[in-house]
Computed example of a mutant assay.
Amino acid sequence: MKKSNYSKSVVISVSIHALFIMLLLWGADFSFDHKQSVGNTIQATMVDPAMLNQQAQQIRQQRQAAKDAEQARQDRLEKQTAVLEKQRKAEAERIRQLKEDKLTAEKATREAEKQRQLQQQQVAEAKAKADAQAKVEAKAKADAKAKAEVQAKVDAQVKADAKAKADAQAKIDAQVKAAAKAKADAKAKADAKAKADAKAKADAKAKADAKAKADAKAKADAKAKADAKVKADAKAKADVKAKADAQAKQDAALNDMFSGLEAENVQRGGAKGKHIADEVARYGTIYKQMIQQNLLVDQSLKGQQCKLTLRLSANGLVLNVSQLAGNDTLCRAAKSAVLQVSEFPMPDNPDVVKQLRVINLTVSP
């Protein structure tokens, strides 16, 4: 109904605009100049200006009246259109509200049905959940009991393992202490032996010095006796044959004495060289023992060898240690053991010390 009224108003408005345009065209001056045939005839028309002004004024008044009438008509149409549009919107709003109320009611019905189904489902799920929970609780109790039994067994095994581990650790600690004590005892023995060797060496040197002094005194006495004998022989020149025999005997005796002294000196030089060699070998053995005490190697290296060159200072400090040949792993362990010793005992004899300044050792675990 509203749509029909609106269409009717539009048609009326268009008709009025068409009529207004026709009035404007009617009032306009549409006179045309018609070409006259060429000739000698001449027509003349007189126009009254006052009449023209009056007609123009009438046309303007008519146009203004038509314009005012059209504006009034437009205003009425706009008011009617506004009223109709307001009515149309109100009707549309009423229809929309009715539809919305219907949708709301349908939605509420669906929600109620959904809630009813949901409640039924929740009741069924709650029952199923209660049944499942009862089964889970029963299983949990059984699992807890089995777990408690297993845990008890595990705790007992852990305690047994801890006790066995503690016992093994105690044995290891005892072995470590025993090894440390044995190492300390061996070091003490080595130090005592080194001191005894040094004392024996000092005693041997004192004896050698005393013997050298006695030999020098005997030689001086022999020389003094020889000088006295020569003086006696010079004084007893009267008996030439006796003096010659005596001189010959004495010369032979002196020759025998000097030969014995030379042999003794040669023997003494050989004994000194042997003594130095023995001392070098003995200290080399001591060095090996000291290195062996600090040597930490795996059983897999048993039977392997490592040849090292040690360079020592005059007081036994390790200046350098280098590998000559042998197993690399064993040589690394041997070098570490040498550096842990750091200072080796040295004898008092400078000749032996000279031989020990650079030594070659073979280490075998």
Rank of each mutant, 00 (worst) to 15 (best):
S7H: 05
K8E: 07
K8I: 15
S9K: 11
V10C: 06
V11P: 00
I12L: 15
V14M: 09
V14P: 00
V14D: 11
S15D: 06
I16H: 03
I16V: 08
A18F: 03
I21M: 14
I21C: 12
M22G: 09
L23Q: 05
L23W: 02
L24W: 01
D29H: 02
F30Y: 04
S31A: 09
F32N: 10
K35F: 12
Q36M: 14
S37G: 03
S37L: 08
G39W: 00
G39N: 06
N40Y: 04
N40E: 14
I42H: 05
A44N: 09
M46N: 07
M46E: 11
V47T: 12
V47E: 11
M51R: 09
L52S: 14
Q54L: 14
Q55H: 08
I59G: 01
R60G: 03
Q61D: 11
Q61T: 12
Q62K: 14
Q62I: 06
R63G: 13
R63Y: 14
R63W: 13
Q64N: 11
Q64E: 04
A65M: 01
A66V: 01
A66R: 00
K67D: 09
K67P: 00
Q71N: 13
Q71V: 07
R73E: 08
Q74W: 15
Q74S: 13
R76I: 03
K79C: 05
A82P: 00
V83E: 07
L84C: 06
E85I: 09
R88F: 03
A90P: 00
A90K: 14
E91I: 05
A92L: 08
R94C: 12
R94K: 10
R94H: 07
L98R: 06
E100P: 00
D101F: 07
D101W: 07
D101Y: 05
K102W: 02
L103S: 07
A105L: 12
A105F: 10
E106G: 00
E106S: 05
K107A: 13
